[in-house]
Nucleic acid binder design. Structure first.
Lengths: 249, 249
DNA sequence: CGGGATATTGAGTTAGTTCAACACAGGTGG
DNA sequence: CCACCTGTGTTGAACTAACTCAATATCCCG
């Protein structure tokens, strides 16, 4: 990791994530606790490893800005990306709650993380039940996203998987207010897509180009533009474009 | 669902799960709350649907005895089994915490569930932080199992996936004290395996037989016997049987 | 004994893989 | 400013793991 600990900067009261609709406004007392709970900020460069498998993480993180991803590897090097974490997502909850990390986390872009004290998590549970509830809620939501990925990787064809993942990333970005006029910065490589979807790089490339050819989106470098969200959704759900309602029996 | 609500039977103080090493003994006060929190028991027949996607579950369940599985389906009928839930596992936490269920749950065997009040979950968070913590812990543990499945389905070959899943089921059963002398009742069909692993039924059958032929386990009907746990682990991790350490460069 | 669910087997097909070039862009050092 | 290098994207060809289809066998239950 090429980054160093730095003095705390952003006051929680001025957290930029507050502006976003999907986050609830904490009560005053809660906010004060969060402020105390927060130990500082960590800035990491794109490509850096934030957490790694087997480590006993000493900290709990929250993404303040930037993109990261969680992944697991097999001994021979095959990699599976578990999900992409964006601002507001937790990292390392597992190592705080359980014994040790069972996956690694890497930064996709330069990223700023809020660092929280692992020991104090108990204090949170004892004194701030609403925050504790939020933690469980986040955890349940994560689970739900994993369910969705598992369905995709297990049962969707390559073209459906890609369409589906692009939609998820698009929606997530939109919720975070990162989409301007259907355009968005997607700091992913085709290899990342492939590893998230359980596909080979080559086939991901070909399938991606097949989708592009249908004018569902444009994606050059980091610049992604959604052209036909409806159409992409149809591909994701394997619906034929103009399906005649099938006979009832 | 072919079952009906029934008067509460098992006292939490006499919960059969207590005997098992992996469960912690709750404090007296906690136990009393759990007892109040529990609304009753629900008995369902094998094959019955316990929860279904889209429902606003009114309850939260815990498996007291029996096997169940969570799954999702695509519009055209493809099914992905997300995981198998066994005694001690929670069901429907998602619908209590979030708005509605995003997956379904079906009983694999006749199953007894403890039914908990969804409304009281807030009371739990407010007054029993240690129990709230346990809930988050369980949720994090689930997530970790899903990570593992995603890795398997996304990156392991069919034979590795099967070996890996059988090992997981074996270990989980052993932890629950359901294995006697390497033998265990596995109430699964090959179709369940296939749907859990993202494979076709036919290929699952062939691969399973290939594994059997290596004398790693015996599996006829519901009766599973582990013959060579080490060997199965090697297959799961794609290690060649007698690998010569590879040259350092 | 009959019927439904499950398991097995063979044969042909295909979606996705691997291998191997090659193209292109940005970034660095001389 | 050029030459080079590395990471990323693209393409074609050959291959194969896994799929589908279809038939048959086996088991269990009433």
């Amino acid at each position: 990791m090429s980054a160093a600990n730095q003095p705390k900067r952003t006051k929680c009261a001025a957290c930029p994530l507050k502006k976003i609709a999907i986050f609830r406004e904490p009560a005053e007392e809660e906010a004060a606790f969060i402020e105390k709970f927060k130990e500082g900020e960590l800035t990491v460069d794109a490509g850096a490893t934030i957490l790694s498998e087997g480590n006993h993480g000493q900290h709990l993180y929250t993404v303040l800005s930037g993109w990261t991803f969680r992944y697991k590897m097999l001994p021979d090097g095959r990699r599976q990306i578990l999900n992409f974490a964006m601002p507001g997502d937790f990292l390392g909850l597992q190592s705080s709650i359980m014994a040790e990390m069972e996956h690694s986390v890497e930064a996709l872009t330069d990223t700023v993380l809020c660092v929280f004290s692992r020991e104090r998590i108990w204090e949170l549970y004892s004194n701030y039940p609403s925050l504790a509830f939020d933690l469980t809620w986040l955890s349940a939501r994560n689970e739900s996203m994993l369910d969705e990925s598992l369905l995709s990787v297990g049962r969707r064809a390559a073209i459906e998987r890609i369409a589906h993942l692009l939609l998820i990333l698009f929606h997530k970005s939109r919720d975070l207010d990162m989409v301007k006029g259907n355009k968005l910065t997607l700091p992913l490589t085709q290899l990342h897509l492939a590893d998230a979807l359980g596909l080979s790089l080559v086939h991901t490339n070909k399938t991606l180009n097949a989708l592009s050819a249908r004018k569902l989106f444009k994606w050059r470098g980091n610049a992604f533009e959604m052209l036909d969200e409806e159409g992409l959704l149809e591909v994701a759900n394997a619906e034929a474009p103009n399906t005649v309602p099938r006979p009832l029996i």
